[in-house]
Amino acid sequence: MAIFNLNINGKKQQVDVDPNTPILWVLRDHLNLVGTKYGCGIAQCGACTIHLGEVAMRSCMLPISVVGNQPITTIEGLSENGDHPVQKAWLDHDVAQCGYCQTGQIMNAAAFLKANPNPSDEEIEAAMNGNICRCGTYTRIKAAIKTAAAG
């Protein structure tokens, strides 16, 4: 066990955990931020996507010990009222079915659009291929990303 000081959604947080603990479980079990989801634990599904700085990361394989003081953003901190352009586009297109994968999809899409505000279809596909949606909402996800990009 060790004490870690984290910067999550603009707030300082302190936890006392095993240094190998993935950020996913720190968020879910210790900080009650459950919007970040567990899907596979091996960086294959994207359900656990967060932002480390401005980069989308799979939190299930990201040990707390390597995070340092880099700011973490989770779905709960992406916007104050759910009005980030990507979230709004998701609501416009009523993307979700079960909804379980969608926070990871949104976090991945938000970081991607920040780096590439005007993506082609192929670029969207390449960027989103690491995020599985078992319900098969891919056509809506893609349409929502385009809406968000169009602003």
Binding site: W90, L91, D94, Q102
Partner: peptide, 23 residues
């Protein structure tokens, strides 16, 4: 007439909804 998912906002903001979120 199409109506939006009543849980839409909770889903896109990551609020607790699922069994795994229960605490």
């Amino acid at each position: 007439k199409s109506r939006k998912n009543v849980d839409g906002l909770k889903i896109v903001t990551g609020q607790p909804l699922f069994g795994v979120d229960y605490s």
